[in-house]
Simulated assay, not measured.
Amino acid sequence: MASGGNPQFRYTQPPSKVIHVRNLPWECTDEELTELGSLFGKVVNTKCNVGANRNQAFIEFADQNQAIAMISYYASSAEPAQVRGKNVYLQYSNRQEIVNSKNTGDAAGNVLLVTMEGVLPDAVSIDVLHLVFSAFGYVHKIATFEKASGYQALIQFSDAETASSAKAALDGRCIPSYLLPELDGSCTLRINYSAHSVLNVKFQSHRSRDYTNPYLPLAPSAIDGSGVAQDGKKEEPESNVLLASVENMQYIVTIDALHEVFSAFGFVQKIAIFEKNSGFHALIQYPDIQTAVKAREALEGHSIYEGGYCKLHLAFSRHTDLNVRVMHHSLVMSKFGITKCTIVLGNKDFDAPGKTTCAI
């Protein structure tokens, strides 16, 4: 570290004419990087939005001495390097030049990765995305999700040519405001090619759609607060048992965590958790329908953990009384001929303290 004690600068690499910049603001531009480095010499190349969070970049100078001048200045300066008022961290790169080789985000494919800027998650529906992208060809599948980099979607076309034409026309453009009448501001599309070639869509829902398979089952998460599913089907009759589907699982969801969340609305009698179609689900039993309705209205669409993690989608189950039996893991596995049990949590009957069972 430099004598000035500036934590922005790290002597981790020998000098290079390429500087590695970290902690950049979201969607930093080439112009901003050029402006940052131009005080010290001629910037001949830049590369933005590098790394998993797309908050890193590279600046290449015409001469190594210019890069040394930049590093030396900020290593001893009391004023840190900044982009848009945000402190950024500098070090020499382990490369001597920026090579803009193709990677998975640059190689053309039939699936596009779309980042929607300026909107909250779910502010742009799958129907709007389908309307926008189907103007360029038949859209097979769409899946939307939340990541640290923002609200994103994967759009699968028939071939790379169709995807390329859509990317060329829409990258950097805004979704027409008349398609998003409730949105204040604009939604800008940033489009890259995905490494995927086929999306695995198991349910039709508000987060995923397979236009090639109209018989795909409807997910519980596709049911909105009005009681009508997105495909027009009636919601299941009300029940004292809720079916919870958990998405964006960045943390393990335990029975105790579910009990703490759902018991805020009344006495929870039983909880059963299970995995189905690679998804995490739970059944929560209340003594009466009224308590279940109250919990569903309060918790639908909310997350167990801050940051949108472990988001709940709730529907009424056809069950009215969960059969939580006392069974040892080995007995369950022997009975069903199972040699490997992948469920590690279980069920719990809160009317019978101390009794647990393996969830199959």
Score class of each variant (00 low, 15 high):
residue 1 M to W: 02
residue 8 Q to P: 01
residue 14 P to Q: 12
residue 22 R to N: 10
residue 31 E to N: 09
residue 39 L to Q: 14
residue 40 F to G: 07
residue 44 V to T: 15
residue 46 T to V: 15
residue 47 K to R: 14
residue 48 C to I: 10
residue 51 G to I: 07
residue 53 N to L: 10
residue 59 I to G: 06
residue 68 I to C: 14
residue 69 A to L: 11
residue 73 Y to W: 14
residue 75 A to H: 02
residue 75 A to Q: 07
residue 81 A to I: 05
residue 81 A to Y: 02
residue 86 K to T: 12
residue 101 S to D: 13
residue 104 T to N: 13
residue 108 A to G: 01
residue 108 A to W: 00
residue 111 V to G: 07
residue 117 E to A: 11
residue 120 L to S: 15
residue 126 I to K: 13
residue 132 V to C: 06
residue 133 F to T: 03
residue 143 A to T: 10
residue 150 G to V: 09
residue 151 Y to G: 04
residue 154 L to P: 02
residue 159 D to A: 05
residue 169 A to D: 11
residue 169 A to Y: 00
residue 169 A to F: 01
residue 176 P to C: 10
residue 177 S to E: 14
residue 177 S to G: 12
residue 178 Y to G: 01
residue 186 S to E: 15
residue 187 C to P: 13
residue 190 R to N: 11
residue 190 R to T: 08
residue 191 I to Q: 05
residue 192 N to W: 03
residue 194 S to T: 06
residue 199 L to R: 12
residue 203 F to S: 11
residue 206 H to W: 04
residue 211 Y to E: 09
residue 224 D to M: 09
residue 228 V to N: 06
residue 231 D to H: 07
residue 232 G to R: 10
residue 234 K to A: 13
residue 235 E to F: 00
residue 236 E to T: 07
residue 243 L to W: 06
residue 245 S to V: 04
residue 253 V to S: 12
residue 256 D to G: 04
residue 258 L to C: 11
residue 265 F to N: 13
residue 267 F to R: 15
residue 268 V to M: 08
residue 275 E to T: 10
residue 277 N to Q: 11
residue 280 F to T: 13
residue 282 A to S: 13
residue 285 Q to V: 05
residue 289 I to H: 06
residue 298 A to C: 12
residue 308 G to T: 05
residue 316 F to C: 07
residue 320 T to C: 08
residue 324 V to N: 02
residue 333 M to T: 07
residue 339 T to A: 05
residue 356 T to Y: 09
residue 357 T to V: 04
